[in-house]
Each structure stands twice: as C-alpha cells, then as structure tokens.
Simulated scan of single mutants.
Amino acid sequence: MSRQPYVCFSHGKESGPWGSKISAMADLARDRGLEVESIDYRGMDDPAARVAKLVAHCQPLQKPLVLVGSSMGGHVAAAASAQLPAVRGLFLIAPAFYMPGYEALTPTPRAARITIVHGWRDDVVPVDNSIRFAREQRAGLHLIDGDHRLTDHIFEINRFFDWFLDDV
C-alpha cells in the first residue's frame, strides 16, 4: 500500500466536481505530490446514492484516503468514511449535518483526523451544526467570516487545508 494519501473531493448539491474551491485545494494537493480526484455527482440528489458512488470509487484503492467534502459533499465524505478502512482524514467545508428532518442521518465518521471550516454567516447550513458536530467528534473547527459558499475565502481554506495535510 502506498504511504501517500489519495485525496478525493465531494462537491455540494448545487455545485460541480471542479468548482473554484475544489480546484484550488486540488492544485495545493498536487503541488504536494498527492494524487487527487473529484467525483461527479451532478444529477444525483440522493445523499445515499452519492455515498455509494464514493465508496465504490475508493474501496478498490490500495492507498490511505483523505476525503474532502463541501456542504452535502461533507455529509457524503463523512458517511463514506464509516465504510472505508483507510481514511486518514476528513476535511469538511460547511458540512450539511443535523439538517431539519434529517438529523438522524448525520453520519458517525471514522477517520484519524477531522477538520471543519464553516462560515459564521452561513444561511444554508447553520454554523451551530458544525460546532455541535465538532464537539461530538472532537474535530478541529475553523470559523471564518463568510457565507455558505465561502468562495471569497479560498485562500484561508487552502491555508487550513495545507495545515491539515501536514498532519495526515
């Protein structure tokens, strides 16, 4: 098994596999010599189907994994981590946890390290949801002055991602 982690990105419901945040983080990971992939979930609204697709993609890999997800993609990455044996880390951006009517579906992840970045002004996924999740999972949490998309904060996100990769 290769010692270098394979970084796999999961985009949000309204996004695509190579949006601005994922592209910036992928460039950073590639600059570190890491292999990256971003799964295309467009047209798939069911989170369970997205989790199954991510697990099917990652299961045959003989590499430690770093799963990165934004919004619904954060939920997908965390849920998939519970089904994959070699997840070194989860890096989650405004993950869709504890959403009204779906609280029971919030996953219990399995990863050596979990870090969350969330915007204080998020009007889609309440910041309190990430605070709660971080407390329950003993995850790292970075709160920044941004909205749900955090597109104006790519530099900060990459700085946190770079530090995260140092530890995984």
Results as ranks from 00 to 15, higher is better:
residue 3 R to S: 15
residue 3 R to W: 06
residue 6 Y to P: 06
residue 9 F to Y: 13
residue 14 E to N: 11
residue 19 G to M: 11
residue 21 K to C: 13
residue 23 S to H: 08
residue 24 A to E: 07
residue 26 A to S: 15
residue 26 A to L: 12
residue 27 D to C: 03
residue 35 E to N: 02
residue 35 E to M: 15
residue 36 V to C: 13
residue 38 S to K: 07
residue 41 Y to N: 07
residue 43 G to I: 03
residue 48 A to Y: 06
residue 48 A to M: 11
residue 53 K to E: 12
residue 54 L to Q: 09
residue 54 L to N: 09
residue 55 V to R: 03
residue 56 A to Y: 02
residue 59 Q to P: 00
residue 61 L to F: 09
residue 64 P to L: 11
residue 71 S to G: 11
residue 71 S to N: 02
residue 71 S to D: 05
residue 73 G to S: 08
residue 75 H to N: 06
residue 83 Q to G: 13
residue 85 P to R: 05
residue 86 A to G: 01
residue 90 L to R: 00
residue 92 L to F: 10
residue 94 A to Q: 09
residue 95 P to N: 14
residue 98 Y to W: 08
residue 98 Y to S: 06
residue 101 G to I: 06
residue 103 E to M: 09
residue 103 E to H: 06
residue 104 A to D: 15
residue 106 T to Y: 06
residue 106 T to N: 13
residue 107 P to L: 01
residue 108 T to M: 15
residue 109 P to F: 10
residue 110 R to F: 02
residue 111 A to V: 06
residue 112 A to E: 14
residue 117 V to Q: 01
residue 118 H to A: 12
residue 119 G to E: 03
residue 120 W to N: 09
residue 121 R to I: 03
residue 122 D to R: 02
residue 123 D to E: 15
residue 124 V to T: 13
residue 125 V to I: 15
residue 128 D to S: 14
residue 128 D to I: 10
residue 130 S to N: 12
residue 131 I to M: 13
residue 132 R to K: 15
residue 133 F to P: 12
residue 136 E to I: 02
residue 138 R to Y: 04
residue 140 G to E: 15
residue 141 L to D: 12
residue 142 H to I: 07
residue 151 T to G: 05
residue 155 F to K: 14
residue 157 I to K: 01
residue 158 N to T: 01
residue 158 N to V: 08
residue 160 F to S: 05
residue 162 D to M: 04
residue 166 D to Y: 00
residue 166 D to C: 15
residue 167 D to K: 13
